[in-house]
Nucleic acid binder design. Sequence first.
RNA 1: GUCCCCGUCGUCUAGCCCGGCCUAGGACACCGCCCUUUCACGGCGAUAACACGGGUUCAAAUCCCGUCGGGGACGCCA
Length: 502
Amino acid sequence: MKAIATMPDSVSPVSAPPRVRFAPSPTGFLHVGSARTFIFNWLFARHNQGTMVLRLDDTDVERNTDASVQSIFEGLRWLGLNWDEEYKQSERLDLHRAAAETIFARGLAYRDFTPAHAGDDNQSSAQGAWLFNPGMREMPREESDRRAAAGEPFALRYRVPRGEGRVLHFADGVYGAQSRPTDEVEDFALLRSDGMPTYHLASCVDDADLRISHIIRGQDHLTNTYKHLLIFEALGAQAPQFAHLPLLVAPDGTKLSKRKHGPVVSVTTYRDAGFLPQAFVNFLCLLGWSPKNDRDFLVLDEIRTLFTLEGVNRANAVVNFTEEDPFDAKAVWLNAEHIRALPVEELAHCLTPFLEQAGFHAAPDKVAAVAPLIRERIKLLGEAPAAADFFFVDKLPGYDPAELIPLKKGETTGDPALALRVLESARQVLAATDFDHDSLDKALREAATQLGLKAGPMFQPIRVAVCGRKNAPPLFETLVVLGREVCLARIAEAEERIASLG
RNA sequence: GUCCCCGUCGUCUAGCCCGGCCUAGGACACCGCCCUUUCACGGCGAUAACACGGGUUCAAAUCCCGUCGGGGACGCCA
């Protein structure tokens, strides 16, 4: 990162509480990049006691769907960050059209009768003819009126000043002082030939009308800002402050896109895999922003307190994922941290849907008992069923009986007879001992001593017998949660398995 | 093609505006060791970066110029 912004976010000298907005267009699920933009806006609003506005930018009837609207709300609700006001752009069309008329009446726009899509493929010519539509911009008003009256469709274009030496300026809250001659800004559309406003028009009209004070959005809008400046001016409105956020990019360096990068860019993918929203938010905040205090694990309250636009940097941030590993390792680690930070009851609550989805009967007591045993062993909630299956199934899935038999270092075959003796002894102990952690601990260690065994070779057969695998939570806690009956039955079954090994 | 933005460990980043405290700090990942009934957690340690080239200066990751590299915008999409 180089050179610091001249006027970071101290741009607005004194300060009515800010009003910011998040304005997604409902053309798909909630994108992680959009989620981050939303979060940063929310943080800015809440840090400054401002207002958070949610506005659906749905002026593209061709591409907007209700399903998408639902999915975006679903994503936002999951994040758990609230907003104060809500608008739908499609319900404000009168406002947009009136604004377009005003701009046209002021002579700041012209009708463009070029058929839609006419210029889709031809490249801009060398002298910059792409800046405007020749023949349209200079068309006499009489001809324009006549053709319009005759019903010929037209788009309304902004007449960007040419050859006046005018330069547009703004102070970006992240990128600093920005400027561009109007000669380099093309004549952009305000109204489509079907009469619908374009994004540029609708968004600026609404931002002005809703008295948005700060527009915080992706850096891909940086160069659009000059057009927006022109619209605010034509509207006679004071332009808001702008702050552009560095982009979230894929490992290939390009902007994250659903088409190119698949479901890993959808917020719901994270939710479904078992991310905690607070962990996801924590992760996203660290992409392009730093608390500058060497801390990574942060809760929302801390982030809100610490958040400023000065902490936002300018280089694009890579979200690291691969085909095999769809989630950034840091996101996963943060999630594990947040899981461990959760009180047991809350963790149990979060775990339940995942357990149920795996077909387990997740009784609240049971889940609460299991949660502390797996909390350090899972990084995603979605890993819970695999980590805790043996607590919930009636019958253990098949496992390799050889695992019941401990191997000494360097050996390839163990001693089945010894394993059998361990299990027999364990069965007797479990049948006779109080079923609590300390009693079990004491009794089983005594049994080990009697067999002349250390803890390892004593506990492995028991663990595998009751869990069906070698890697599992601590033994005594596990036995207690499982209960005496289940343990005895599984040990007996394990003995049969060894016997059947021959 | 034109314009704009960016460039510190593999990744996220601190440091850059106000040059010296930077033999560049933290985190994740990876590797090793310790703890330990397994796995995990935890603890300790190791490897690893200022894109390149000039300039200014006693001194540059920090200032200036250039090069290269990456990204973005240029739509009757948002």
